[in-house]
Design a binder for these strands. Structure first.
Lengths: 322, 322
DNA sequence: GCCTATTATACTGATGTTGAGTATAAGTAT
DNA sequence: ATACTTATACTCAACATCAGTATAATAGGC
């Protein structure tokens, strides 16, 4: 077994990739650059104290966004993810939660990289189940069916059918909104998305491929996005991170809409309110909002103390399996 | 905002650190090298297809261990974690589950690095609550008390008291076995562990420091171990990963002891069995084990199919908050 | 043969959580 | 005024969880 450090002295470089999420107008959005098909990335420099501080410094300087919550997502270094074969880039991806606003003048005016916010459902239309099963499903389904039918033998076919059914909530399986990455991976295997067709010379089933909606991204950025969505959908259930995405004060329905936007499905209103109140996550500001079109709603504020209280204990949000 | 790759071409190297876990004789153990205070690490080479395949190849070749489950833990690159200031090592840590056996001859005979299995409670004695609150607690508690008392002002003191109470289950707080990392970080801040005293020239409260039990490790390896323990303790509750640590056949009590070893606390037997059976995680082999000293116990086998079935749906284990 | 230690198995009840439905209050648009 | 929208407050059944108890089957020591 090898001894300690003697680290390899090869041509390796490190990049930080930022997945910045905000929720605006009931839409979960990600910050993109370059014709809106790439995630912003920055170099990891020796000057940085740590990976996270490197990311924070770089993002806040360049965008002026208030980065509340930041967490490491995943580290990638697959050989085939970058074109060059002799050099290797390690990409450490981070998920950051913020609010869509306050892009610096510099940022807003510079159209060089065309930084802009885009709904993550532009890239994953099949992940939005708020209005029932999305339209994408019809073409997606035929793609899946073709993939299942194309299996070499009976058992493989059966396995594929099972897997597709479980992941996409077919037959009597229920839709599980957390399986974003697994669904993406299945579609990659099934070559239903353009990314799968890069680099190797195997036949391209254009008929299927071109028909499945959802914009692709460069390299494996869409995969990183899938990872982030999955992580966030899981996290909001046991950590009070949603509030990083909310304005200072908000109504309970706004909060609910935000959660629904992230989860991609609707929640039961009375239960949602019960859970929020039971856990004392918010406090009444005494003010009301009349912009709702109906009875004025109380405005609440996040009780910042719970961050200290439950850095530990955790939280619950009612996103059920139905 | 920066464009895409232009990755920095600085002196950066990448290392893979392996946290290999097995459970033997009711003890959760980790593979260590170098006088048993370091985790094995290997280089990340250009030849490797991906990070995970690099780790797998390297571990299995050198140790002959059957690596079942492998997952990425965390990526570190803090400046102060390595001695050298001008070079930067990115360490990607992985958690691997295996069984303690089948170390290759080469491995077993080579005493060069003295690879050996050690109980993770050697490094974290305060994490084992199977026999009630561990003895470590007395010295640990006085350390915490000193840290609380040393706070500069009243509010800080109150916060420290709160935090310590919640993390270590003092007063009427319950012990949460998942907070391994947070406890380690508190102790680091409170300078109750030797690692905290490296590198900077601040005063050393030897009286306290030397009295808190638990072996230190080199660099930030003990922190990585804490991260891994926390991850595993969380994971066994919703993923059937325990079985990677079990022999082919086992009794329900053996399984329970394994879970208890990992969680560091005892579980309620009837409830444990009910949950295991309800979920159909195991199947009867028809054989029994008489090595228990009592009534022969049925031998069970893990139903490998559930890996396919619930790569998705998840699993439950009864590790309660009491 | 009896006692004890060990495990297997079955049941019970209190408590808490969850999903879903209903009723009433307070505003706005027509 | 009326309808429509949203806010807020309850209720209820189904289910899961925690904890405790009782009984049966086997081995080993005395």
């Amino acid at each position: 077994m090898r001894s300690l450090p003697p680290a390899s002295t090869q041509a390796i470089a490190a990049d930080l990739i930022a997945l910045l999420v905000a929720v605006t107008a009931g839409d979960p959005r990600v910050l993109t650059i370059q014709d809106q098909n790439a995630l912003p990335s920055g170099p990891f420099e020796l000057a940085h104290r740590s990976l996270q501080s490197g990311l924070r410094a770089w993002v806040e300087r360049q965008t002026g966004l208030p980065l509340g919550y930041v967490e490491q997502l995943y580290t990638f270094a697959d050989r085939d993810r970058t074109g060059a074969a002799d050099q290797r880039i390690i990409s450490i991806s981070y998920l950051g939660l913020t609010r869509e606003q306050g892009l610096t003048r510099e940022q807003a005016e510079s159209s060089q990289y065309e930084a802009s916010w885009r709904s993550w459902y532009d890239y994953f239309p099949w992940e939005d189940h708020r209005l029932g099963t999305p339209v994408a499903d019809k073409t997606l389904r035929s793609g899946l069916t073709a993939w299942i039918a194309a299996a070499p033998d009976r058992t493989t076919r059966s396995h594929r059918r099972q897997r597709a059914a479980r992941l996409f909530g077919l037959d009597d399986h229920i839709w599980n909104e957390e399986l974003v990455l697994q669904r993406y991976e299945l579609m990659y295997e099934a070559r239903l998305i353009p990314e799968a067709l890069r680099g190797d010379g195997s036949p391209v089933p254009t008929a299927i491929t071109t028909s499945v909606p959802g914009d692709p991204m460069i390299l494996d950025h869409r995969r990183i996005l899938a990872t982030g969505i999955a992580r966030l959908r899981a996290k909001i259930k046991y950590r009070p991170v949603v509030f990083e995405l909310m304005p200072e004060t908000f109504t309970l329905l706004q909060l609910q809409r935000c959660v629904e936007a992230l989860a991609g499905k609707l929640v039961h209103k009375p239960n949602f309110r019960r859970l929020i109140e039971q856990q004392e996550l918010v406090e009444d500001t005494g003010e009301t909002s009349q912009e709702t079109g109906g009875r004025p709603a109380k405005l609440f504020r996040f009780r910042r103390v719970v961050l200290a209280e439950r850095a530990i204990a955790g939280t619950k949000l009612p996103i059920s399996g139905t």
